[in-house]
Write a protein that binds this DNA or RNA. Structure first.
Length: 358
DNA sequence: AAGTCGGGGGC
DNA sequence: GCCCCAGACTT
């Protein structure tokens, strides 16, 4: 009977705090159009605000609206995404823009079901667009909201497990108010990011601390429970550094898997495959090569070691090599006029090294 | 239900 | 080093 009162109690406290302390000057808040909210939400998936801001600003200058994004090439979109990670986000964003451009005349859809059907948009991102851009009462459940709710109710278990996630969604829906839903949604993210921080939570400044179960237990740092982790595997990749007067040879990666759709160095399965690879793809058999120092690259779930092998081009055989590229899957990366392509972060590092040697 | 997908921030 | 971050998608 008093559950409704309790729900308003929660959102009222959050909203009062927001009026005084919430963030109101983030780039995507200035004109919270569906397009601005959408792009920002996709960039912010698993990515911190301070990292996103410069990417968002560059992106909006180049792709100011859905149609600008839809009519651009996917390589250029990935170029603007280079360094942000999770590149499927960029390809999905581009696909969705093309869908909106061709099927909805460039007008962003207004219904939740249409929005959640867009590639790359799940339940939480769709809720954020509905709440922030349209003021409709839809809930979100991002990392911030999860942390606030896990602590407020002292919820045990990993928040990614289906049982805990289901409980959290029910709570998120319950607390989301009908009035001022845009402010409330922003407030919950701000509360999680600024006050209910992963470490070093500022509980004395939190509008909810008098009712927070984790605070009452004096065990705020224990929530949310972290994901059980396994040992991260190590992967070794042999990559080829082939430089001609046209630049560095790059190969486009398939859309699925790591660095999907990005341009990387050609990769071979083992050292014995190098000669065959050159014969097949470049119509020449290298006489010798040099192994360069390896680069390590830590990902969430594995550790990569790149072993660059520099192929020495035989004198006079460069013309044959030129026949290789450009094509759909190969290109020459010109250091003096770098093309707008997406490159994995360690390849960017390697390109910098190669540029120094040339 | 568990794995995959990246790079950077912060301690 | 380690864990996490305005999650979604595939298997």
């Amino acid at each position: 009977m008093n559950t409704h009162q309790t729900d308003n109690h929660f959102s009222n406290r959050v909203l009062t705090w927001f009026d005084r302390h919430g963030r109101k000057h983030l780039p995507w808040q200035q004109q919270p159009t569906p397009y601005h909210v959408w792009v920002s939400e996709i960039m912010l998936q698993q990515t911190q605000v301070t990292t996103v801001i410069p990417y968002y600003q560059r992106f909006m200058v180049r792709f100011p609206d859905v149609s600008a994004l839809a009519t651009a090439g996917v390589d250029e979109v990935l170029h603007y995404w280079t360094g942000l990670g999770y590149y499927a986000r960029a390809r999905h964003l581009h696909q969705a823009a093309q869908h909106i451009h061709s099927q909805h005349h460039g007008i962003f859809p207004t219904q939740w079901a249409e929005i959640v059907a867009l590639p790359g948009v799940g339940r939480s991102t769709a809720g954020a667009i509905m709440a922030l851009a349209y003021g409709q009462r839809y809930a979100i459940l991002d990392g911030n909201v999860k942390r606030v709710l896990c602590r407020y109710h002292a919820i045990t278990g990993w928040s990614g497990s289906s049982a805990v996630s289901q409980s959290l969604w029910a709570l998120a829906e319950k607390y989301t108010p009908a009035n001022r839903v845009a402010d409330y949604t922003q407030a919950m993210m701000d509360l999680g990011a600024l006050i209910c921080r992963r470490r070093g939570a500022l509980c004395e400044e939190c509008p909810l601390h008098s009712d927070c179960q984790a605070y009452r237990q004096q065990a705020v740092d224990a929530y949310p429970h972290s994901k059980p982790r396994k040992a991260t595997p190590e992967n070794h990749l042999i990559v080829l550094v082939i430089v001609s007067e046209k630049g560095l040879l790059l190969e486009k990666r398939p859309d699925t898997g790591i660095w999907g759709g990005l341009w990387s160095l050609p990769q071979v399965s083992d050292m014995t495959a190098i000669a065959d690879w050159c014969k097949t793809h470049c119509q020449f058999t290298p006489t010798n090569w040099h192994t360069w120092p390896s680069l390590s690259h830590q990902l969430t779930h594995l550790r990569l070691h790149l072993h660059p092998v520099a192929i020495v081009l035989p004198e006079g055989n460069a013309p044959n090599l030129l026949a290789v590229a450009p094509s759909a899957s190969f290109c020459w990366y010109n250091f003096d006029a770098p093309p707008a392509l997406g490159l994995p972060a360690p390849v960017v590092r390697l390109v910098e090294q190669i540029k120094m040697k040339c």
